[in-house]
Computed example of a mutant assay.
Amino acid sequence: MRYQDQLFEQRENLILDTARQLFAEQPWDRVTIAEVALAAGIGKGTVYKHFPSKEALYARLVLDLNRINLRELRALHAASSAQDAMHKVIRRAFEQMLANPIEAQLCLHCDRLEFQERLEAPLRQLFLDLEGEYQLFFADLLSTTFDNQTLSQADTQNLLWGVEACINGVMTRIASGGFTHWAEPIALDDYFARVTDFIIAGLRAQASELIAQPHRHE
């Protein structure tokens, strides 16, 4: 890598790290590019060379976090038995969100249609690519869980819709601060356990029904 490219990458990482720190200290949607630049010790124009808008900065933070999380989930899947893989992966996914509640809020924000439409085409494509990687991972996880029974792409997508709805619900709960403001607070660990069991039970029932459909054996 050329020296100039190394400097560019180091400065970009500095901007991202500074933004994460500021987002942890105050409402992330109120932090300005000027404040990021000041805290990083660089000019505002320099920040814009890396990230032309706050949306681009948000997008990069979310993309980076999801890539890191997906690598961890893949490694966990590879190290788990077929019986335990689905349970461990779902629970770990919840723990990843809990470890980064601010970035969970950012993930929800970046998933909105109006946000995606404001992004430049290359960034939108990166989100589509990431979604495809998660779908492939989910298909592989399903195959392991159901003894390598073949599910069609359409079947896998249908099952993923239900899982996504549950995971987005958990992400929203974490982003909103959990249950501490409820009259009778619920421990998040218990909540994660119940939702994980719910997801797996639903997947088993629906996948078994799909696998047993007569047209699959014609």
Rank of each mutant, 00 (worst) to 15 (best):
Q4I: 10
L7D: 08
F8S: 12
L14V: 07
L14D: 01
A19R: 00
A24S: 09
Q26C: 05
W28D: 06
D29C: 04
D29A: 04
R30N: 08
V36R: 03
I42V: 14
K44L: 04
K44N: 08
G45S: 06
G45L: 09
T46M: 06
Y48C: 02
S53T: 14
K54F: 04
K54H: 07
E55Q: 14
L57I: 09
Y58M: 05
R60A: 12
V62P: 00
L63Y: 12
L63I: 15
L63A: 09
L73E: 03
R74N: 07
R74C: 08
A79M: 09
S80I: 00
S81I: 00
Q83W: 09
D84L: 11
D84N: 14
M86T: 05
K88V: 00
V89T: 06
I90K: 02
I90W: 05
R91S: 02
R91E: 05
R91D: 03
R92S: 05
F94M: 15
E95S: 12
L98H: 08
P101C: 02
P101I: 05
A104I: 11
Q105C: 13
L106C: 06
H109D: 03
C110D: 01
R112K: 15
Q116R: 15
R118A: 13
L119S: 05
A121G: 01
L123A: 10
R124F: 11
R124H: 06
L126N: 07
L128D: 14
D129H: 08
L130F: 15
E133S: 04
Y134D: 02
Y134A: 06
L136M: 13
D140E: 06
L141W: 05
S143R: 15
T144N: 03
T145P: 01
N148G: 03
Q149G: 02
T150S: 13
T150W: 09
L151G: 00
S152W: 02
D155L: 02
D155V: 10
T156C: 01
Q157R: 15
N158E: 00
N158P: 00
N158K: 14
C166D: 14
G169F: 04
V170R: 01
G177Y: 11
G177C: 03
G177N: 07
F179R: 01
T180I: 14
E184R: 11
P185A: 14
A187K: 02
L188M: 15
D189P: 03
D190K: 01
A193G: 01
A193P: 00
T196V: 07
D197A: 15
F198Y: 15
F198W: 10
A201F: 06
G202E: 04
G202Q: 02
G202A: 01
A205N: 09
A207W: 06
S208P: 00
S208I: 08
S208G: 12
A212E: 11
P214Y: 13
H215C: 06
R216H: 15
